[in-house]
C-alpha cells in the first residue's frame, strides 16, 4: 500500500502537476497577487487616503450592515430548511429542496430585478412601505434584501448533504430518552452541527460581502449612502482612481482569503474527528 502510494512520480505525473500549478498560478495566484501589488503601487499614502475617505467608510458600513443582517437570516433559514428537508416527512420537503436551488440558478442581476418587481415603489407592497417612510429600493433595506436573496440557500445547501449523511439517529435517540422535539434540536442537532454551521456561515459571509450584481440593480448608487464596497470598487475603477479601487479590492480579497482559511481549518477539524472514528477498532 504505502510503497504504491509513495511511488516516485514519473514524467507524466510531473507534467500534469506542472500544468495544474501553472493554471492555478495564472488564473488565481497572479491576479490576486496583482491586486495587492496595484493597491500598494503608489506607496502607503494613497492607501491610507483611500481608507480615510468618507464614501469608503460608508460603503464598508453598508456592506457590514448587509452582511450582519443577511448572514444571521440565511443561517437561521438554512438550518430550518435543512432540518425540514432532511428530518421531516412533510410532502413539501422535496419542493423545498428544489426551490433551494433557485437562488443559485438565477443570475444575481435577475434577483435584483425580481426585487424591483416585488418591492419597487410601483408595486402595492413597495408603495405601502414607502408611503410609511420605509422605502425598500434604493435604500439599505433593498440592499440587505438583495444580499439575503442571493445568499439565501448558501447555508442550507452546505448543511443538507451533511445532515443527510448523519441521518436522524441522534435525534431519535434523544427522543427515545425523553427529550422533547425542541430539546432534541437544541441539545443534539444544533451542537452536532456547530463546525459545519461555522463553515456554512463563513461561506454566507463571503458571499454577502462580495455581492455585486443584485445590489447594483437596487442600490441607486448614491455616494455615501447606498454604495457597497463592490459597487464602490467598480465606480472608483471607472473614475480612474485605480489605487482606490485596488485598495478596496485587496481588502475584499483579504476577507475572502481569511474566510477560506477558516473554512479549511474547520474542514480539517471535521476530518480529524472522522478519521479518529475510522481508526478506532
Amino acid at each position: 500500500m504505502h510503497t504504491l502510494a509513495r511511488r516516485r512520480p514519473n514524467g507524466a505525473a510531473w507534467a500534469i502537476v506542472s500544468v495544474a500549478v501553472a493554471i492555478v498560478a495564472t488564473l488565481v495566484a497572479v491576479p490576486v497577487g496583482a491586486v495587492f501589488v496595484y493597491a500598494f503601487s503608489r506607496g502607503f499614502d494613497p492607501v491610507l487616503r483611500t481608507l480615510a475617505r468618507a464614501d469608503v467608510h460608508s460603503a464598508m458600513g453598508l456592506s457590514a450592515l448587509a452582511a450582519a443582517v443577511s448572514v444571521p437570516f440565511v443561517t437561521v433559514f438554512g438550518v430550518a430548511a435543512a432540518w425540514v428537508v432532511t428530518r421531516t416527512e412533510l410532502p413539501s420537503r422535496r419542493a423545498l429542496a428544489a426551490i433551494l436551488n433557485v437562488p443559485f440558478a438565477i443570475p444575481p442581476v435577475v434577483a435584483g430585478l425580481l426585487l424591483v418587481l416585488v418591492v419597487g415603489p410601483h408595486t402595492p407592497l413597495g408603495y405601502w412601505l414607502a408611503a410609511r417612510g420605509f422605502p425598500v429600493l434604493f435604500a439599505a433595506p433593498g440592499i440587505i434584501l438583495a444580499t439575503s436573496l442571493v445568499s439565501l440557500s448558501v447555508v442550507a445547501k452546505d448543511l443538507i448533504p451533511l445532515m443527510e449523511a448523519l441521518g436522524p439517529a441522534e435525534e431519535l435517540a434523544a427522543r427515545s430518552l425523553g427529550a422533547t422535539p425542541f430539546q432534541a434540536f437544541v441539545r443534539v442537532t444544533l451542537p452536532g452541527l456547530s463546525l459545519p454551521l461555522l463553515h456554512a456561515t463563513v461561506g454566507a459571509l463571503a458571499r454577502a460581502l462580495g455581492e455585486f450584481g443584485s445590489v447594483s440593480v437596487v442600490s441607486g448608487r448614491i455616494r455615501g449612502e447606498t454604495m457597497t464596497v463592490p459597487l464602490l470598487i467598480e465606480a472608483l475603477y471607472g473614475e480612474y482612481d485605480q489605487t482606490g479601487a485596488f485598495v478596496l479590492a485587496a481588502l475584499l480579497a483579504l476577507v475572502a482569503i481569511a474566510s477560506l482559511a477558516v473554512k479549511k481549518a474547520v474542514e480539517a477539524a471535521v476530518a480529524r474527528t472522522v478519521n479518529a472514528e475510522e481508526v478506532s477498532p
Partner: peptide
Amino acid sequence: FVFQSYALFRHLSVFENVAFGLRV
C-alpha cells in the same frame, strides 16, 4: 432504545451521553 449505529451524541462526553436522559 439502543441503535444499530450507536447514535451516541458526537459532541457530548461519555458521561453526558449517559446522563442525557436524566437531564432532559
